[in-house]
């Protein structure tokens, strides 16, 4: 399969045969099979999301929260406030959006590069390969909060290993820098997110490489193709279907990432680490302004739908041309 949205088109051919009549009699079967999934999605995702969209048009503040159905309808006011880049609320949302975009790009690209490097390097056997592979997968299996909280401990200015390593052991720079406050906080959260995410890229790309038939390589090896050229002309194109999905999935996860800033910074989040999910959480829960928070979430959702739509269209068009 090539992309998520192409699968429907690749639906199985309706095979003509003796079972046709029986199949028609059982037209309800696929629906019955889907029912549990649909029900769950309705209950947990769709209905709550529609409720959230409705909330975004109300002034759901602490004055109305205990009788939230009676919160006054304010039309697009919450959206106007959120999009007014000259106001205090809108400008901080825009800043957070910018930080999140930069964060997503950096984390996805670097994770992909690391994952690709590791997958290529581990593609051919050498001594200790399976041990290395196992080690690389560990960060993906470590529960998210356990990993991130360890990083929080490591990034402490006076008691953390990072400053100890850089300043005391390696003698880089003078005076221990802060990693969890100020502008370096951005570097920190990017590194932590990469630590957690790159094994996933590695895993997917490794799986993808396994399906590249090895005779392709052998043929090109006889041509004396250089390793890098070989990677560019054979490996990369073969991995294209994986990459299309991998980049999309990782981007969505990273963009919506709430857990990493939440565990890494706690209540003392620095401006440089103000990722958008966390920003909206604070806007909703810390200030009790659920109407405004919902409006921001809806804007975020619209943005993601748009980007995903454009991405898939471009990718599909290109693959059709190819």
């Amino acid at each position: 399969m090539t992309t998520t949205l192409q699968r429907p088109r690749k639906a199985p051919p309706a095979s003509p045969g003796p079972h046709d009549r029986r199949r028609r009699a059982r037209w309800w079967l696929p629906y019955a099979l889907l029912a549990p999934a649909v029900l769950m999605e309705l209950l947990i995702h769709l209905v709550p999301m529609l409720t959230g969209i409705w909330m975004s048009f109300t002034q759901l503040t602490k004055f109305f929260i205990s009788s939230w159905t009676e919160a006054p309808f304010v039309g697009l006011k919450n959206y106007r406030v959120a999009l007014d880049v000259h106001g205090a609320v809108g400008s901080s949302l825009l800043r957070s959006f910018g930080i999140t975009c930069a964060y997503t790009m950096l984390v996805v690209v670097i994770s992909w590069v690391l994952g690709m490097a590791a997958a290529v390097v581990l593609q051919r056997p050498f001594r200790g390969r399976s041990g290395v592979r196992t080690l690389f997968l560990v960060p993906y299996a470590v529960p998210m909060y356990a990993g991130v909280i360890t990083w929080n401990f490591m990034l402490q200015r006076d008691t953390g290993v990072i400053n100890h390593l850089l300043v005391d052991d390696l003698g880089i720079g003078s005076g221990k820098p802060f990693w969890l406050i100020g502008s370096r906080a951005f570097t920190s959260i990017v590194i932590v997110a990469i630590w957690r995410l790159w094994p996933f890229a590695f895993l997917m790309l490794m799986a993808g490489l396994q399906s590249v038939p090895s005779d392709v390589y052998e043929a090109s090896a006889m041509d004396g193709a250089h390793a890098f050229r070989q990677w560019r002309s054979i490996t990369l194109p073969m991995l294209r279907p994986v990459n299309v999905v991998l980049v999309l999935v990782m981007s969505l996860w990273v963009f919506n990432d709430f857990n990493t800033p939440y565990v890494l910074f706690g209540t003392a989040q620095p401006a440089a680490g103000d990722l958008i999910s966390f920003h909206i959480y604070n806007a909703s829960f810390l200030t009790w302004n659920f109407g405004a928070g919902s409006a921001m979430s809806v804007l975020l959702l619209l943005f993601l739908l748009l980007v995903t739509g454009v991405y898939l269209t471009v990718v599909n068009r290109r693959s059709q041309r190819a």
Binding site: V81, G87, A88, V89, T287, N289, A292
Partner: peptide, 10 residues
């Protein structure tokens, strides 16, 4: 001022 605007907005 920013803090005040935020409080006023909500």
């Amino acid at each position: 001022q920013t803090a005040q605007d935020q409080v006023a907005a909500s």
